[in-house]
Design a protein around this nucleic acid. Structure first.
Lengths: 355, 355
DNA sequence: CTGTTAGCGCATTCAC
DNA sequence: GTGAATGCGCTAACAG
């Protein structure tokens, strides 16, 4: 291992003192042009890297970050995201980070507005955003931009904003993968069905839209899904679905594969299960407790998962790297792997094997 | 966040000095029974945790670790493992770790013996072992045990040893999963084939044996694979396989699914591909460059992957936690997730999204 | 056996 | 503008 070059070394090489080098590294001004040039020349030659440990201990300032995303219980998608965040905070417990949450109801735009309202004014050092409503998010971001508060997206990116990093999944690819799986596990000539959830304000989420595109495209290109039927169901009042779902599949007896393009596959799976419609294979999204139950009892064939825990973890890690070590080499947009989880590999998908 | 209690605090509470507390935390001896008890009482009350940053910088000792595993090129299984190790070493570049490799040829027991030979005598602080040959490994471990040198297994565990940690995959579950996938994607009543590779010394690797058990068991329990044919092929001289593979599948026209229980699926896939035998679906193991090619061109349907990179990464991380922060809460045996990689999600499986 | 102390590399005053 | 000085919490060497 090559010996790391230290600030003092650089200072000596550039003929200045350590303090000056530090001022330059941190863009803190009060440096003469001559010193700046000398130091930057040395810097470009030797490739300095912070020692994160010493850096961390002497940085005594407390950082405040705000995390805003939909409310969730532990077993759900956003719950896992929060686990990841907690995990990162724990890993970095030696750095003092004051972390505040601003949760909102992902089905209620008003709750989102009121959650976003006071974020910029509380002047945090950074914000992590799990976005749902486009307009509200754009408006939040522009207020953050004008205060120069950096922010990071998880789960989804929003157009017209400038986050310092984004962690998402390629939803279009998810759709294609879902199409492929359904195609592979159903007999030739099968029909498919897409189940959307009814959204308040009649707008499908962006993620679902992309997934559907990918799914349809795969089917078209590969001759999968002789017929593709489409319907919707209610997440808020699941008891209403029983009749309509059964009616739907009876009306379309060619259906052998169902794609539920959000994380509520278990709702459909439970219904099919109760009626022993096990000639129909179902694939849905995300490793939620309910879906896990569906995988276990065989009512769900597979789940496509996007590592929400890792997303949260990386978001925090990136904030810290940005704020404390002002790293500029952080990837702008990171795409998560799409994990295919079935009964046989389910047990090994605990997030945070990563210690 | 609760304020962390520091060594000085503990010293004050126990009525001793910081040096004494440090000696106790590190089991460095030279402490009176009275002091020890006082400190341990305080410790159990307040729950001390090291500040890894300050700890790291003042730890001026250099640690030497030896990593022994099969030789490999970058795109291969063991190559990815080494990537993970490198990655961890990079993440901890502020700790001086002198890392030496002792590679051996996984097909040559003599090379393994000579690689293991001098490891204990060089008295490293820890050893990371990617084992292949059982006897040789057991012997190495017992020599390490008698010198109290800690070691960690990656990829496989070996009976009759006492590592401080192990990172593997549940190979039996892999076999079941493979059986399930093949079952799902082939028409009812299909026959399957298992391809083993010919091993020098006629011994199948332990991993393959477990995988086969899982596979057979799944098929038996679920009525998958009307017939299960078995044959072997040569990894060392792939050109010999063409005729025998084609002969084999022609002789058994019921075969619609092939399981290659090691990472050499591409060898069979290439042959099937050249002869346009695309009614036969193939599943194999590990994200190697050659297999990736097979996924891309459609000759391999799916790969089961066991995150070798993460294994290497965690092994190093664990060594460091053990050696430097003498943590005792480290998991003894960690099972990796089994990733199912297909054409549609291939591109997102770069290991080390984890920054 | 024990307390004291000098660093570790960096960030941040504070005089100059 | 700049350099020297101080402290972060911990380790390890040293003097008692």
């Amino acid at each position: 291992m090559a010996k790391q070059v230290k600030i003092k070394d650089i200072a000596k090489m550039a003929g200045v003192s350590a303090g000056t080098v530090d001022r330059i590294l941190h863009n803190r001004g009060n440096v003469s042009q001559a010193s700046r040039e000398a130091v930057e020349r040395v810097l470009s030659e030797v490739g300095y890297r912070y020692n994160i440990h010493t850096s961390a201990i002497s940085l005594r300032r407390e950082y405040r970050i705000i995390i805003t995303m939909p409310t969730a219980s532990p077993g759900e998608y956003w719950g896992t995201m929060q686990e990841g965040i907690k995990h990162a905070l724990h890993e970095y417990c030696d750095i003092s980070i004051d972390c505040n949450y601003a949760f909102y109801n992902q089905f209620d735009v008003y709750s989102c507005r009121s959650a976003f309202e006071s974020i910029p004014d509380s002047a945090p050092d950074a914000v992590i955003i799990g976005p749902t409503f486009t307009e509200e998010t754009v408006s939040l971001c522009s207020r953050l931009d004008s205060r120069k508060i950096p922010y990071i997206f998880v789960d989804a990116a929003i157009e017209g904003t400038s986050p310092i990093a984004t962690f998402t999944t390629d939803q279009y690819a998810c759709g294609e993968l879902l199409g492929h799986i359904l195609h592979s596990i159903t007999p030739a000539g099968s029909g498919f069905a897409i189940f959307r959830n009814q959204r308040i304000g009649n707008r499908s989420s962006n993620n679902s839209v992309e997934r559907k595109k990918g799914f349809m495209n795969y089917c078209r290109k590969n001759g999968a899904g002789q017929q593709i039927h489409e319907t919707s169901f209610s997440v808020m009042t699941p008891e209403d679905n029983e009749k309509s779902v059964i009616g739907f599949v009876e009306k379309h007896p060619d259906i052998r594969g169902i794609a539920v393009l959000n994380s509520r596959g278990y709702i459909i799976a439970d219904i099919l299960n109760r009626h022993s419609l096990d000639h129909i294979k179902m694939v849905s999204f995300d490793l939620t407790s309910n879906n896990i139950r569906g995988i276990r009892d065989g009512s769900i064939e597979a789940l496509l998962c996007q590592r929400p825990g890792l997303q949260g973890f990386l978001a925090v890690k990136t904030v810290i790297r940005y704020l404390l070590y002002n790293r500029t080499d952080l990837p702008l947009h990171t795409l998560m792997p799409i994990d295919i989880v079935m009964k046989q590999n389910l047990d090994f998908y605990r997030e945070f094997t990563e210690l």
